[in-house]
Simulated assay, not measured.
Amino acid sequence: MVLPHNLLSIGELAERARVSVKAVRFYSEQGLLPEADRSGGGHRRYAPQALERLRLIRSLRALDVSLPEIARVVAEHTAEDGAGDGFDEGLEAVVARQLDSLGAQLAALRWREAALRLLHEAAAVERPELLRLVGALGTPPSTETLARYWRGLLPARLPARLVAAIVEAAVPPLPEQPSPAHVLAFAQLHELTAAVNDACLAEHRPSPPRPDMLYDGLREAYDLAAPALLAGRGPAEGEALDCFVAAHARAHDRRDTPDYRRELGRDLAVGDHPAMRRYWALAGELTPAPTLGAVNTWLSSALAAQLVTDRGAPPR
C-alpha cells in the first residue's frame, strides 16, 4: 500500500511538536489524536493537521486541564476548523473552570499555612489541644456545621426564605487571607456548634406566636443599626430602635407602648445564653462587619438607655 507523501510518522510528529513519542502514542490511545492511516508495517501515520491539534493538547495539559475537558475543546476546534464561537466559548468555559479550581486550591493552601503557623507559634504544651481542634476541620474548612446549627436553632415554622437569609447573615465567611488567630477562632466556633445537640437547640429555640414577623422586622432593624456600629456610634434612640421594638411587639401580637418597652427591656436584660455569647464573640474575630449578635446588643442597649432616661424624666 502506498501512503500519501505528506503523512507524518509518529517520530516526525513528536519531533516537530517537541514532545516524546510516548506522549504522542498516549494521546492517540486516548482518542485525542486520531491517526490518518497505518504503514505497511502497522506504524501510525498522521495528517499534517495533527501537529496543530497536538500543540493544542499540550498547551491545555500545561494548564492542568483534564483529558475529558481537552477532548471537548479539541472536538469543537476540529468541528470549526480551528476557530468559531463554539470553540471560543468552550475554551472560555474550560479556562473559567480551571480558575475556579485553582482558586479553591489556593484557598486550601492559605488555610493550611495559617493552621501550621498556629501550631508552630504555639507553646509546646498547647500544641496537642490545638492540633485536636484544627484536625477536626477540613482544608479549607466548611461552614456547614455552623449553618446546620442555625437551621436547628431557628423556629420550625419560619419561612424558608427567612431561614436562608438568617443563616447567611449569622454564619461568618471564611477570611480570604486567614491568620493563625482566624484558624483558632473558626476551630473553636466549629467545636462549639458541633457539640450542640437537638435537645439543647430545642431548649433555646425562640418560639414567638408569629416568628416570621419577628425575624422580618429584626432584619430591617439590623440593617438600620449596622451603619451606626460601623461608624463607632454608641447605642441611641431612633428609627432602628423603633423597628427593633416593633418587630418584637408584632411577633407577640402586642403594640409598641411604654409598658411594652419596659417589659421587653426586662426580658432582654436577662441576656443571651452563654453559648450564644461565645458564638458571637468568635464570629466577630472572623469578620470586620458587625455580627448579628453585635447589632442585637447595640439595639438592646439602646432600649435600656432609653428606659433609664424615661425613668429620670419629669412627669408631663
Rank of each mutant, 00 (worst) to 15 (best):
R97N: 06
P274C: 07
A181D: 15
L118R: 15
E29V: 00
D267R: 15
S28Q: 14
E285C: 13
A124G: 06
L130W: 06
C200D: 14
L60Q: 05
T193E: 02
H190D: 15
R261Q: 06
L116W: 12
R127G: 05
R58C: 06
N296Q: 13
T291L: 10
A305V: 02
E203T: 13
R210C: 09
P180E: 04
D100K: 13
E69W: 00
S39L: 03
L63I: 00
D272G: 01
L230P: 00
A93D: 13
R261K: 09
P288Q: 08
R45H: 11
P211C: 04
A195D: 06
G234T: 10
E176V: 12
L162V: 03
A115N: 10
S207P: 02
P172N: 07
L130S: 08
A269S: 14
L292G: 06
A281I: 01
W150M: 02
A50M: 10
V167P: 02
A107W: 04
A236N: 05
A187I: 11
V134H: 08
V2M: 12
V19C: 13
A124T: 14
A123S: 12
V270Q: 12
G135F: 09
A164Q: 15
L241Q: 04
D267F: 08
G103T: 14
L106C: 09
T257P: 01
R255G: 12
L60G: 03
G103I: 01
A83T: 14
A93N: 09
A108K: 04
S28C: 11
D37C: 01
E126F: 08
R25Q: 13
L189Y: 10
